[in-house]
Design a protein around this nucleic acid. Structure first.
Lengths: 197, 197
DNA sequence: CTGGGTTGACCGACCAGTCGGTATCCTTGG
DNA sequence: CCAAGGATACCGACTGGTCGGTCAACCCAG
């Protein structure tokens, strides 16, 4: 018979995938390295061959998410369209990709503070750059007069991303709402909340 | 000299206060019982005299927050005023009380999943009742035609409380914004997002 | 003298990370 | 063409240490 599917997936990728699943399910501190390697069908030696530490595993997961989100936001922000449309598109997209990677989202807001001090700082910095990119869209709209200017743009970003990050606590892929549906509603709420008084 | 301030506070209350502070600072799993009792100036035996387990400590913290929030929401919801005003008042209030008890908020969204299965379920149920109370206000406004009706009220609640729960990740009491200021902005965004198209 | 409150040494379970070892492949030079 | 030898991938028993929770004994107010 052909080699099993698990053999096709390289060990490193399998470790990341299982770690993501388990961290989302039980939290970082409640998941032992032993459980991760057992789920991936390898032993500790293999894990410590590919990663420096359990912390490093979490760091990799964050890096993957952050790179992906930043790249996608860039494409919406740089498009040629009215600012309200670009913001709406970016908002829908971040919701859709969040629900498509719900495990990543759960890990983010539950386990980020478990990272070592320096790793934590670098993740925060990367995250801040992402928020600033998003905020610039809002500021642009406020300057153009299409968004209300009496609420700080930074706060609007925190307001919106609070909602996005919390999708992991209530959204279920097999529930009545699809990702794009939730994304459209969220984006509508955002744009609507920004209409000049 | 008079008895020290710590002696005035009963042991049980001190344990809860220190546990809240430490859980918020380092997370539930990263805080040992030994650290909690040391901070409270007692020993493990004393803690296990008042609480069944470390889990029970967390459960009590949740219970305290939930009771307080539910009671306050009730007062706003039952007031005599236009529904938009009642919702706005409740929204401002939940933000203000959240930033006044930021530690509780941090614990909520970081450590809830560490509770035992049954405790977790009861906390979720209590939380759901709170959300439903809030949602009913929105439904009332939608029926009255003062709020847009094309977005499910449940989703609006999740949208708003996502933002509220995430205050713990970015709000600093000594920052430029006071609790009531943030509350007003958040409430304005909520009401604004609900204006009929 | 009694019993609620409190002590702190102790227990078994578990954990992240280490390390000496093995198996398999790739390179190299004879 | 092949043997030698090094590099890579992986194994799993083990270590030093931490954790939540227990319990027999103690203290002192009523």
């Amino acid at each position: 018979m052909a080699r099993g599917a698990t053999v096709e997936e390289p060990v490193r990728r399998r470790l990341l995938a299982e770690a993501t699943r388990l961290f989302a399910e039980r939290g970082f501190e409640s998941t032992s390295v032993q459980e991760i390697v057992a789920a991936a069908g390898v032993t500790k030696g293999a894990m410590y061959h590919y990663f420096d530490s359990k912390d490093d595993l979490l760091h990799e997961i964050y890096g993957r998410v952050l790179r992906m989100q930043m790249e996608r936001l860039g494409r919406f922000a740089d498009a040629e369209a009215p600012v309200a449309e670009r913001l709406h598109g970016a908002a829908v997209d971040v919701v859709v990709t969040t629900v498509e990677n719900l495990d990543d989202s759960k890990i983010f807001f539950q386990s980020m503070h478990q990272l070592s001090a320096e790793t934590y700082k670098s993740v925060r910095a990367e995250r801040r750059r992402y928020h600033e990119r998003f905020r610039d869209l809002i500021v642009e709209g406020q300057r153009a007069g299409v968004f209300r200017g009496d609420i700080p743009a930074d706060m609007v970003v925190d307001f919106f991303f609070g909602s996005v990050h919390h999708l992991g606590t209530w959204y279920h892929p097999d529930g009545p709402l699809s990702g794009p549906e939730v994304g459209r509603h969220f984006a509508d709420l955002l744009i609507s909340s920004l209409r000049p008084a």
